[in-house]
Design a protein around this nucleic acid. Sequence first.
DNA 1: TTGAAATATTCACTTGAGAGAATATTCTCA
DNA 2: TGAGAATATTCTCTCAAGTGAATATTTCAA
Lengths: 117, 117
Amino acid sequence: MEEEFISVYKCLCDLTRLRILNLLKQAPLCVCHVQDVLGEPQPKVSKQLSYLKRHGMIESVRNANWTIYRLPNDPGPLLDGNLKCLQDFVFQESVFQEDLKRLDRIDTSAACVPEDA
Amino acid sequence: MEEEFISVYKCLCDLTRLRILNLLKQAPLCVCHVQDVLGEPQPKVSKQLSYLKRHGMIESVRNANWTIYRLPNDPGPLLDGNLKCLQDFVFQESVFQEDLKRLDRIDTSAACVPEDA
DNA sequence: TTGAAATATTCACTTGAGAGAATATTCTCA
DNA sequence: TGAGAATATTCTCTCAAGTGAATATTTCAA
């Protein structure tokens, strides 16, 4: 059981992963949108999404050609608590704010955007 | 600046370091007491204390033969927030509770215990 | 000044994981 | 079925960092 929170903190010590979590806190997203917002190469984004999923921080659903990633509907208290903590202290940083601005400009009518939140 | 919180999370993803922080949250401690409570080899404890210090998570003061480590008097909001988060979700785990019990049994009249908290 | 206690550092080894480039897989639709 | 889009994986390289064992350093006290 000790491994669980170690695992959570490992997920939080990479900037790319933090940026991803910041985005997914807003809405479920497909890989290409995450990629667009972050401006990072596709394999890099995909690998970090895999990493987060492998450690139980996010979930994924295949939607036709796209894979939609999202925060779990019921995140455990540890993940939930840490996300709130991030919200308060970390996600205020400009990197994350800039990401959110770019996220707003994304075409949400694109085919890959899931109907249900 | 992004490096700062990455650094904090890196400090939190090792069990030994978490155990140390849990102890230092109670009181400043010398290396030998930390070592006694954790039951880990001295070089391992010393190295993780160095790691935490190097990353600004803790401070140290030399007191005669001993080095006293403690949380900073004024931890930044990030560290402070995370310590509270740890308190709520992580430090409840039995590993940490057992550590606290062992800490209580430590001879606080030993020479290495600093006068001022 | 020499020994012993407390702490710190070094060494050799191993592993996890990040990066970029290339390639593989999956899925849809013409 | 075959092309193309979206995503995933593999490969190679590099580096941070964990471990145990050994050793060095610092400090006090006799």
